[in-house]
């Protein structure tokens, strides 16, 4: 199962991955138009402090606490990918309460949002990986964390 991994030594902290992620979810053609003056809610987020930066996105855990804890059944794991059914999500934030990576976040859409490896946007490779200018984000097989 391929996942998104980040090499923090190569991360520039440019936040482009966040914009590519938000753009991938926007279903629009032009990134500038899609994201201008929009407060983005990406599924990948940069942490930065003291000269270190790295991106964090869903680990698609082998034993996913978010899926187990979800009160509605909106979060499910199929073929190794954890996805959210936004119609069922009621924004209770139980998944935010329990994700040990801080990889699920609120959105403006009335449902939480998270990395779904771009399987819904049908671009083949995740957009954050495609858009990273320094090759710091990779999409490869390493096995899921517990």
């Amino acid at each position: 199962m391929k996942r998104v991994y980040v090499n923090e030594k190569w991360c520039l902290g440019c936040h482009l991955c966040e914009y590519y992620c938000a753009f991938a979810g926007s279903n629009q053609k032009d990134m500038a138009i899609a994201l201008k003056n929009v407060r983005i809610n990406p599924g990948i987020r940069i942490e930065e402090h003291g000269g270190i930066s790295f991106a964090v996105s869903c680990r698609h855990c082998r034993e996913p606490l978010c899926v187990k804890a979800c009160i509605t059944g909106a979060l499910t794991k199929n073929d190794g990918v954890i996805t959210i059914d936004k119609r069922r999500c009621v924004n209770c934030y139980t998944c935010i309460l329990i994700c040990p990576y801080g990889a699920i976040s609120p959105s403006a859409e009335g449902a939480v949002q998270k990395c779904e490896l771009c399987i819904k946007s049908n671009t083949g490779r995740p957009s954050c990986v495609e858009g990273c200018p320094n090759g710091a984000i990779v999409f490869e097989e390493r096995g899921a964390p517990t």
Binding site: R3, Y5, V6, E8, E47, E48, H49, I52, F54, V56, R59, P100, Y101, G102, R142, G143, A144, P145
Partner: peptide
Amino acid sequence: GLMAFTGEDRRKKLGGNLG
């Protein structure tokens, strides 16, 4: 954030289980 962990702990958390 995961920033508060040591670089090594962070790699364990985010790096995947190689192999």
